[in-house]
Design a protein around this nucleic acid. Structure first.
Length: 272
DNA sequence: AAACTTATGCGTAGGGCGCC
DNA sequence: GGCGCCCTACGCATAAGTTT
């Protein structure tokens, strides 16, 4: 019990505090070299002399100090422009308690929004066109979130939301599609869910993305709330399942990096 | 201090993909 | 079926270190 608590608290900020690509002029290559040379986190960096000119080192140390202050004060927005989109997953372990999982339904591709589903890890909210979907409710739902998690949201959900509600989303966004692909989980959300053992309710299991647009049309044509209920249920399951998917993929990616780069010095002391 | 070398960041273009 | 993103490869830009 205690050991569990201790190990998770050690892990909590692990990946973010091991990130050096947030520094000016440091890219993926330099970051790898730092890891391989035993510089594993911000603390290591500031203690070591690394292979950087003194003036530049001072500048980078200051940047890390600022990042540290941002992390302590729970300021996720600080990292939004420092991490490239495909590395945003590194924020997950630090901000997952305040993560918001989002999925939208529309009337077609790049079309009008019908439902926005949001899950904060405990409760779900669905904003439905013609009922409670408006700027104020969306802002309220986004209010406390520190990070946003989607599947393919960078290409689909967020651009559409941005089109209808400009400037609404300013917190960092983790798109699990990229993260999944790097874990070897290729394909759409439903396929990946099956791959990692996430189950859907029977009725929803059989649905495809295109059915969501169809359900909305049926609901509009008949006013039968049954269609809307199915649509909302489908959407809600999407958002809820994103949480487990995020836990699995972000942890997998973190472990993979540590396995590949953090143990390098040990293998070098071996036989050669 | 100028010229050269090395490491690595960064911008660009084409191809592929998943969202409803 | 349109859109925006990531991936990959490639070449240029830049900064720091080295040689002359």
């Amino acid at each position: 019990m205690q050991t569990g608590l201790i190990s998770t608290s050690f892990l909590a900020d692990a990946m973010l505090k091991s990130s050096f690509i947030i520094l000016e002029g440091i890219g993926k290559e330099k970051e790898k070299k730092l890891w391989q040379s035993g510089v594993h986190d911000w603390h290591d960096f500031r203690r070591s002399s690394v292979n950087i000119s003194p003036a530049r080192k001072r500048r980078l140390d200051n940047q890390l100090a600022e990042a540290g202050r941002a992390l302590i004060s729970d300021n996720s927005e600080y990292f939004k422009n420092l991490l490239p989109q495909n590395e945003m997953w590194r924020l997950f372990s630090s901000f997952k308690e305040d993560a918001l999982y989002l999925d939208i339904e529309t009337t077609g591709l790049m079309d009008g929004i019908t439902v926005i589903g949001l899950f904060d890890g405990r409760n779900t909210v669905s904003l439905v066109r013609g009922y409670n979907l408006d700027k104020n409710n969306l802002r309220k739902a986004l209010n406390k979130a520190k990070i946003l998690v989607t599947f393919n949201g960078a290409s689909f959900d967020l651009p559409i939301i941005e089109k209808h509600y400009p400037g609404m989303i300013n917190i960092p966004h983790i798109d699990l599609k990229t993260a999944c692909a790097r874990c070897g989980f290729k394909g759409g959300l439903k396929k990946i869910e099956r791959l990692i053992g996430i189950r859907r309710t029977e009725q929803i299991q059989r649905m495809h993305g295109g059915d969501a647009a169809l359900l909305w049309r049926y609901f509009q044509a008949t006013s039968d709330s049954h269609y809307l209920d199915i649509l909302r249920e489908y959407n809600e399951e999407d958002t809820v399942n994103l949480q487990r998917l995020a836990e699995i993929t972000c942890l997998t990616l973190e472990k993979e990096i540590k396995r590949k780069y953090f143990c390098q010095d040990m293998s070098m002391t071996g036989i050669e």
